[in-house]
C-alpha cells in the first residue's frame, strides 16, 4: 500500500505484530493516530517497523528520552518522534504511550500541544 508515497518524504513504516497490517506515514504523529485507529477496530498494538527520522536517544527510559529530545522541540516532542526514537531502543509504541500516560498522571510531563509533550 501507498507505494508511491514511500519515495517521497515520509516518517517511516508501521506494522501490526498480530495481524498483517502494514502502512507508511508521512508525519510522525500520523503514526499515533494510526495506532489508535487500529487499536479501536482490532484491539491490536501496531509498532514501528522502520523509521526515517534523525531523532535518536541513548536510553530506553521514556522520561530520560523525552528530556533529551525536548531541547530540539520547543513546542513539545511529537509522540510520533518519541515512539520512533524509543523503538530503536526496543521500546514499543504501546510501552511508550503507557509510560507517557503514567508520567502525565504523575504531573511529571505536560502537553503544550495535542500529542506533543515536554518534561516539566
Amino acid at each position: 500500500m501507498a507505494m508511491e508515497r514511500e519515495k517521497s518524504a515520509h516518517a517511516g513504516a508501521l506494522a501490526c505484530p498480530t495481524c498483517d497490517f502494514h502502512t507508511t506515514v508521512a508525519e510522525p504523529n500520523d503514526a499515533i493516530e494510526c495506532y489508535r485507529r487500529h487499536r479501536s477496530v482490532t484491539g491490536h498494538a501496531i509498532a514501528w517497523e522502520r523509521t526515517a527520522l534523525d531523532a535518536a536517544v541513548e536510553t530506553d527510559d521514556v522520561e530520560t528520552a523525552l528530556d533529551g529530545l525536548g531541547d530540539e522541540y520547543g513546542e513539545g516532542v511529537p509522540l510520533g518522534v518519541l515512539t520512533a526514537a524509543l523503538a530503536e531502543r526496543g521500546v514499543t509504541i504501546e510501552e511508550t504511550l503507557d509510560a507517557i500516560y503514567a508520567l502525565r498522571m504523575e504531573g511529571a510531563i505536560y502537553e503544550p500541544r495535542d500529542d506533543r509533550v515536554l518534561v516539566v
Binding site: 495481524c19 502502512t23 494510526c34
Partner: peptide, 8 residues
C-alpha cells in the same frame, strides 16, 4: 479473521 487496511 479480521484484517484492517488503511487505504489512501
Amino acid at each position: 479473521r479480521r484484517y484492517v487496511s488503511e487505504v489512501e
